[in-house]
Design a binder for these strands. Structure first.
Lengths: 195, 195, 195, 195
DNA sequence: GATGAATGAGCTTTCATTCAT
DNA sequence: AATGAATGAAAGCTCATTCAT
């Protein structure tokens, strides 16, 4: 049997090309033409599948958020102890971020653009949801007497702020170091909010 | 003495208009034409004083950084104890940020754009300098046994990360609350790095 | 007997959707995509039945012209007296036009586009034929001494011009008023050309 | 003394080129690129002076309306008798139209496009104003017992409708014939509304 | 210092149409 | 008869920047 030429799956090609461009040049500096030539799809095809540059970014971010969330899975497991959940949340973010530094930059760029450009409202919504550890979950921990009773916006900043901050400036880091750093930040996060 | 009509100080007018636009619409969405009509200066005038849009942003950021640094003055006073210095650094950032939330957004946007666009290299340099408490100062505290011996990039993230993170999402906050929040984050920062 | 689901008659659906779009937005502003989504037919179907946007308009105009002609039937009846024929021609136009003001607008648009766009030549031909009362018929009336001996282009303008002109600016008008107005213009038309 | 090269007056060049294109191909079929190459101005220049294609058409129509109004001057002279005024109004339209048949086509196209496209609202307003003989003036004639007491929209259609209708189909006509035809329509107009 | 006309590359997006299935 | 992915030319328009005055 002859291996049939797989269907090109244009949608996928376009997404891949767009991601490569966004990571390389940033969202603003990427033109549709860049994506067109990199994906070898036609302009029309791109618009056939996506409403515009913003929709492309949205689709990609959705995927990125999923990839990241996978690493933080333990944070959402209801069986986890508060400490485990919080440490998983921080570690997940940091390890994902240190492994994908260009994704971090891309997400940062989208976050700040989205706060100005109404066309990117869906992106804003998406990124706001990306807070792995939810407010409800934290409230549960407060009720259990495990953590300090703080407004979630503050608790969130205390727990994840250092990681976000570090990632924003960090370059590529060897995998073994990443684990140690993740551990360090996870410990600090737990110390910052424990009861 | 005749009341002389003051010179209009075009440079100032242009900067003010540019800032207003950048804060309102973001850097990317602001065109020179926007600044022109808001400042009531001519295109030529703008280019007479500034090399381009990037240079305008740079000049404004320089001013913003100064305004913010003023609030963190105690952080740099060599007389200050380590705790005072660190608390001042965090408080300065938070109070300035809560009072000027749109400046925060503007700086965030510039930071992420600058990391992609080579034209904005001067901006990147400027924002990287904006780390009030310097590495050298922290090294001194380590030597004095006052704080943990951490790489500065990590210490910096632990101390200021929560504040940056909080500011990014916070809206306008009444001044009296700002003080209490600043205090909370300042305490957390000190706890995170004290020996 | 089982109620058979009627065949959807795609052709009809497409025509209806196209007409609705043309009347609503105008021919130029209507895209095939608009017609596609309104008719719930596929792009391919549309092109299966019609050669293009122009052909769609042509088919619709043909129908419109027929609907209008029905109202002017008496004008073409060889039994009619000259006065009856002319009055019927004017009334038919006016009543049809006042009842279907958006069709009037559509026809006007097509007429002017057709005079510039060679692709729309069939449309031009169609609209030129739409002159209910024909030149030959008018010549017969001249020979019978019933009307003035004028070039038909002039006679036509004298008889139908006021109606066209009125329709172009008129909005929706209640049916009873339409009759009175039609009568007024019919009388004027007859007075303008009677011997 | 050497004849100095006159300033190119880009604005004028652009208008002239645009008019030539609009008359030749119609508004819809004319692209900015067409105007650019015909005027030898840059795209930027065109947009420096005009907000867009619609604004160009508007400017040209304003001029056209003026040119035509000049021919109908006597219609507006308060000294004129009702008959003179009405005849002047009709003659002015017809002679202008027969002399500038392509302008007529252009105006017709703009009128019908404007009724669908909100961007062309200024055009619509402009063309609606172009009714040389105003409603107020007609009301005066009614009061003086010179003409029939008809709603102005109807009187207007009776007086000018035939001319509009004729012009829409007429091609180029020799100047001497134009006068005779104008006279014929002017007489018909007066007969249609005289008391 | 100041003006604003002039530039033209470059952008996103639309759209009628084709065609393999 | 029906589908909808794919095409790519072409459109209108924006904008940072230059430069003669």
């Amino acid at each position: 049997m002859i291996a049939s030429k797989q269907p090109p799956d244009r949608r996928r090609q376009i997404l891949d090309a767009a991601l490569a461009c966004f990571l390389e040049r940033g969202f603003v500096a990427t033109s549709i033409a860049d994506i067109r030539s990199r994906s070898r799809a036609s302009t029309g095809s791109i618009y056939h599948f996506f409403a515009g540059k913003g929709a492309l970014a949205e689709a990609l971010l959705r995927e990125a958020v999923i990839g990241w969330a996978r690493l933080s899975a333990a944070a959402l497991d209801p069986q986890s102890s508060p400490e485990t959940a919080i440490r998983a949340s921080v570690s997940g973010l940091l390890i994902w971020g240190l492994t994908n530094p260009r994704h971090v930059r891309f997400m940062e760029e989208m976050r700040s653009l989205a706060s100005n450009d109404p066309d990117l409202a869906p992106v804003r919504a998406l990124l706001d949801d990306g807070q792995t550890l939810g407010a409800a979950q934290y409230a549960g921990m407060v009720a259990a007497g495990a953590v300090q009773d703080l407004p979630f916006s503050i608790a969130h900043a205390l727990m994840l702020g250092p990681s976000y901050s570090y990632l924003r400036r960090a370059g590529n880091i060897p995998a073994d170091q990443a684990d140690r750093i993740a551990d360090l930040f996870a410990t600090a996060a737990w110390d910052a909010v424990r009861a």
